[in-house]
Design a protein around this nucleic acid. Structure first.
Lengths: 299, 299
DNA sequence: ACAAAAGTGTTCGTCTTACACCCATGC
DNA sequence: GCATGGGTGTAAGACGAACACTTTTGT
């Protein structure tokens, strides 16, 4: 097969996120290792977004709503089989998981256990000594600073939106499984499972983007059902951020930004006093280009 | 020539920004119409960034410093000659213009006259009646809201980072020159000149990104010489934002974020009392992943 | 002396954070 | 009745916007 000069194949990759059962989840297709919905860009596709929607629907049956471009990867050493160069254009999509095979929705925190700061941060505690060791090896100064910032060592604040940077540190430190024959010291309950090609990095990119965006744009609502209680909304934000937020402040922010309106109904699902139901005021997407759901710090 | 199925060509496009003589400028290559440095991704390129740097240096002699990916374009109707589909991966680069042919650095505000809000906003005043007319034509409600938000009508705040959205509105309203034979009512002194393909849209994307980023990341300094006065720094921020900022508050923010340190020297360039010289504390790029140069509103 | 730009101190108001407390339901 | 989550008021404090004013140079 003659290899054409400078030829490329273009692949579309989707990070489809939904929140279910207390965890944000990404949609995978069947097969081992875990992989994201993806497929080549066809001449028949009107646009890359259209192609992406088609591939996701083909492979998972899910019709996408909100979609935005994430990043385009093309490093030469990503070549998988020595043939043509591969360009991957990745997209972030938000959905809520309905009528979909639950098996395929993998929790963020199974993929990246250290990203969930709502418990006691056990994964990070396990990782830290290995990170310190890696930092001590060489280029010490810069490595230590990176670890301190990304993993909130020495009393720093944990910044949820640094998911990609954390993954990169772990990758460089060799603490993350990157091939089927990888043999590291730590098990997958701490480092997470292997994924196809660089799909895991792509997911980390998506997590970082979503966590950053949720702070200044009202995108959470793309992950919510049409009606919801403020408690559910808060739980959704906390799941994505991997952090607890302050209840009263959260509610005040949502209110005063006039992001939601009452439906009149109530819900009495999770014990305790029944909660009022709200719906997203879609109008404000037009009214205001800025403004989102800020995260007040700590609980 | 047989057309291969699903074949694509990949092009790298650079929006190189520098601030000189009171205006932010983009680097163009010679030729008419105006065009950005660009070239195909080669097998020999290690990565797209490396390829981009090579093309820019080839075509303009400039060695790039700071570079980040902007957006990837691939709509089928962008096809230029009916042959293979073209994918364009665009990048934003920041530089300061030294040893470079000044002719090639085109002011943002020649390309997008309405984006400069530091004067009396004459361009916007001219555009508004045409925008209102366009909104009245059809889909009135949505169009009016878009105009109000993007162009700050009816007493709204002007948001500098909506540069792309403004361009899109003008494009849809047919107020912007998009081909050599375009004949609109308004002259280029208000609507700006035509650029090759969708290069003008790509510049607008870059402007929006830079204006947004400057508010939460210390990227201004990539546009400054090694030593500068606070006045110069402020002028640079104002040039990019297209807005004046409050002097004292600007200085306080820069100080308290410890973004700069004194060099000890002073500069007495622009009349008046000589100003102290500062340099960027590059360390903070590591120290803090967050925090940038906030823009206090108005003068 | 005056223009022009650098540089400082202080007030005012809003937005953030935090604490304390009451309410309505199920078991 | 008490556990559980829903829901509210208000005070302390951080931060941004704005104003007024002083300092140091060139002409």
């Amino acid at each position: 097969m003659a290899k054409r000069h400078d030829a490329v194949r273009t692949e579309l990759v989707a990070v489809v996120v939904a929140v279910a059962e207390g965890a944000p989840r990404v949609l995978t297709t069947s097969g081992y290792p875990l992989q994201l919905p993806a497929g080549p860009l066809r001449d028949s596709h009107r646009s890359m977004q259209a192609g992406l929607r088609a591939w996701v629907e083909d492979q998972t049956g899910l019709r996408l709503g909100y979609v935005e471009q994430l990043y385009t990867f093309a490093d030469r050493d990503r070549a998988r089989d020595g043939s043509e160069r591969m360009i991957s254009v990745s997209y972030l999509a938000l959905a809520w998981p309905t009528d979909v095979d639950v098996e395929r929705w993998v929790s963020w925190y199974d993929l990246f256990p250290w990203e969930d700061q709502r418990g006691y941060g056990a994964a990070v505690a396990t990782l830290v000594p290995h990170l310190r060791a890696w930092a001590g090896e060489e280029d010490t100064e810069r490595r230590e600073v990176r670890c301190r910032v990304t993993f909130a060592l020495d009393g720093r604040d944990w910044l949820p939106e640094l998911a990609l940077q954390r993954y990169e540190v772990l990758y460089e430190a060799g603490l993350v499984r990157e091939s089927p024959d990888w043999r590291g010291v730590l098990g997958p309950e701490v480092t997470g499972p292997w994924m196809l090609h660089d799909h895991r990095r792509i997911v980390a990119t998506g997590i970082g983007r979503l966590r950053a965006k949720i702070q200044y744009r009202p995108v959470v609502f793309e992950l919510m059902p049409p009606e919801f209680t403020l408690g559910q909304l808060q739980a959704c934000v906390e799941a994505i951020a991997g952090q607890h937020v302050h209840k009263q402040n959260f509610r005040r922010i949502v209110e005063q930004q006039r992001l939601v309106e009452e439906t009149g109904g109530t819900s009495s699902e999770t014990g305790g006093r029944p909660a009022r139901l709200f719906r997203f005021r879609r109008e404000i997407l037009d009214e205001r280009a800025a403004g989102g759901t800020k995260l007040p710090r700590s609980r």
